[in-house]
Design a binder for these strands. Structure first.
Lengths: 332, 332
DNA sequence: CTGAAAGCGCTAACAC
DNA sequence: GTGTTAGCGCTTTCAG
């Protein structure tokens, strides 16, 4: 084991300077004579010195690491967000400590605490929901936190978001021009977004277009292919002729379920889904969808976080990004 | 800013014991009298003491963090692998430092080095390819590294893998029972797996079934929907009546491209794809596919890594996991 | 079972 | 410009 790793002290000795000088060179501090710098660099090269980031973190109280908490990697929605985060993090030279928050209860809190223990410089939390316990943790810490894609009534915590209510409103309004009975198909209604934002936008759109609201048109499901396929028949039997689906994967399931039973879209049913992920382009007809700027949400969230970590001035810490509607094959 | 974080020293003082004892309590060291432990725990609770993992890492030389390097988060293939890694990491209480290796040249090496600098206890590298430069880095370090889903001729580095050659052989053999002209559709042939393993298995299957090999049946493409759609026409015109496609997304594109032009599967063309990701179940007909145990690869890789990190005995450090064929709608 | 003390490798005043 | 000197918060011998 020739792994007696070389330290800043070894470099200093070999170069005939002090540790402080080596540190300056390593950190690009300009207060070093060019000749000295060159000499030190040479030794660093020769000895193949690699600074220990842990020691540096302890001494400087900054780890250049940010924590990212998300519900599930296996989800194109969050993967897109992550990509935005990753690109900006790279740009600002932050590494990413990643963790998933799903699983047993309070996993989110323990994950959050574990990240604080590792002294991350900031945390981005992705997810539809945020528990009360976690909210309290966020308030307790001084570590900057940005919520991305997470709805929150109070605006005390920095966030980057989508206006779900307005998006649903637009989508349902579009459908209401031609349909009487329009379904709202969501995930668990106990989740804030499904039960609140979406429902609000949906009801408002119905009202503004003088369409009747009925609980029979609300379908609570899960974000899986299978759930969609199973729901299809029931959906059609309910008499609705159009639907807004809160998740792309679920929408694909519904589309397939309907088609497997011989129905045609958009003739028999108009469909608008939620995220315009690649899923919507993989099926035929392609699914019309709201397009949220997923990548941008991640990128903007990370950018916001860097500002907070560097104590820069922030004009607005609750950002709402615009969306658009993509009309493809499942709408007329 | 009431953030003068409480240290182990504060706890020791308040509890009237030494730092060492607090450390023992925190680390579950049994050599502490029950009464003392209780007293210390109480103070920890009262002061809301949270150990600083960075300091701990510096002192103990273990960070309980593993690095995971992958090409792209936006890829169901790697997302599945990551899930396996994540679950096992969680089980062994390791956190994950995640980084993507795509982008400019030698990004893989700089990412790798950056992880070493952060003193990760081990690294898992996911990806089809591995550069020579990175290979050298891996050899230089004492930090355990496991390659997952990465082909490598020499077996010096621990790895968990798929037998691509055999899988392709089986798939093509199956098609060869009914077809004369069978295409091989891959990503860039410069990549080891595409240009070597797949090609070998493909040729062997053709030979064993006395089917002619022709370069005209080899299609080099990219792993995107669009590439597949664009390839469809050309594929059909080439005269082949069956194809093995090395990537699911690409396969979906081809399926759609063919169907958009009025062809029917499997009548006009039999298709077998590579990874049996959810994509293959989202389209109609569902795509027949090789099923690699993606989750398991990740899980086994992480398990292997834990063994290496804990210096446990390892029977075989080059693991090959079995695959199976899933016959769905694009084969007869 | 518990305490004292020596670092882990680096940064950050503060002198010179 | 450069060196000196304290720590950062914790683990870990080594005594007792």
């Amino acid at each position: 084991m020739e792994k007696q790793s070389v330290t800043i002290y070894d470099v200093a000795e070999q170069a005939g300077v002090s540790m402080a000088t080596v540190s300056r060179v390593v950190n690009g501090n300009p207060n070093v004579k060019a000749a000295t710098r060159k000499k030190v660099m040479k030794v660093i090269e020769d000895l193949d010195y690699r600074p220990n980031a842990v020691a540096r973190g302890l001494a400087s109280k900054r780890t250049t690491t940010v924590g990212v908490i998300l519900p599930d990697i296996n989800n194109a929605f969050f993967a897109s967000l992550s990509t935005g985060i990753n690109d900006i993090a790279l740009m600002y030279h932050y590494d990413i400590l990643l963790a998933t928050a799903e699983g047993e209860k309070d996993r989110d809190v323990s994950v959050f605490q574990s990240m604080l223990a590792k002294q991350v410089d900031g945390i981005i939390y992705l997810g539809n929901e945020i528990s009360l316990a976690l909210r309290q943790e966020i308030e307790r810490t001084n570590t900057p936190v940005v919520l991305a894609g997470t709805q929150l009534e109070d605006t005390s915590c920095a966030s980057v978001n989508i206006d779900h209510e307005a998006a649903v409103y637009d989508a349902v309004s579009y459908l209401a021009e031609r349909h009487e009975k329009i379904a709202l198909i969501t995930g668990p209604l106990t989740e804030y977004i499904n039960g609140h934002d979406l429902l609000l936008g949906y009801k408002k759109a119905l009202k503004d277009h003088e369409r009747a609201y009925s609980e029979a048109y609300i379908f609570e499901s899960h974000y899986t292919l299978k759930a969609g396929e199973q729901l299809a028949e029931r959906l059609h039997n309910s008499g609705v002729t159009a639907a807004f689906v809160a998740d792309d994967l679920l929408a694909v399931g519904i589309l397939n379920g309907l088609q497997d039973q011989g129905y045609h879209l958009p003739e028999d049913m108009e469909l608008i889904s939620a995220d315009n992920t690649i899923y919507t382009d993989m099926v035929r007809p392609k699914i019309s969808s709201i397009q949220h700027p997923l990548y941008d949400i991640g990128a903007v969230a990370m950018r916001l976080l860097t500002k907070m970590m560097h104590n820069e001035e922030i004009e607005d810490k609750n950002i709402i990004l615009p969306y658009s509607l993509r009309f493809k094959g499942t709408t007329k």
